[in-house]
C-alpha cells in the first residue's frame, strides 16, 4: 500500500445520545470518533455506558447537525419573551374559582 499516507484522515466525529431508561428521552452524552456509524455505536457503548447508563443509543455524525447560533439568540428567542399571554398567570380570575 504505497498510498498509505494519502489515506491519513481523521475518523469523523459522532454525537452520542443515550436513553437512560424507558420513559426518558435520549439525552446528549458526549461525542466520539469512529470510522462509521456502526463502529460509533459500539464505541459509544464502551465509552458512555460501562455501568448500565443506557438502554438505547443514537449516534449521528456531527456534521449533520444544524445548530442555532448563540450570537443570533435575540432574533431567535426574543419573540417569545413578550408573549406573557401564553402563560396561565396572565389571566385574572377571582380566588373563589377552584381547580383551574
Amino acid at each position: 500500500m504505497s498510498d498509505n499516507k494519502k489515506n491519513k484522515k481523521e475518523w469523523p466525529l459522532f454525537e452520542v445520545f443515550v436513553r437512560s431508561k424507558n420513559g426518558l428521552e435520549h439525552r446528549h452524552f458526549g461525542s466520539l470518533h469512529a470510522a462509521d456509524a456502526e463502529m460509533a455505536l459500539e464505541n459509544a457503548r464502551d465509552v458512555y455506558t460501562r455501568r448500565n447508563e443506557g438502554v438505547s443509543i443514537w449516534v449521528v455524525e456531527a456534521k449533520n447537525i444544524k445548530a442555532s447560533n448563540p450570537d443570533e439568540n435575540g432574533e431567535m428567542f426574543e419573540p417569545a419573551s413578550d408573549k406573557v399571554y401564553r402563560h396561565p398567570t396572565f389571566y385574572d380570575l377571582p380566588d373563589e374559582v377552584k381547580h383551574m
Binding site: N4, N7, K8, K9, W11, A35, D36, M39
Partner: peptide, 14 residues
C-alpha cells in the same frame, strides 16, 4: 495507523 486507515477504507467502501 494501519488499523485506522483500514477501518476508514472499509467505511468508505460500504
Amino acid at each position: 495507523q494501519w488499523v485506522r486507515d483500514a477501518a476508514m477504507a472499509h467505511a468508505d467502501k460500504q
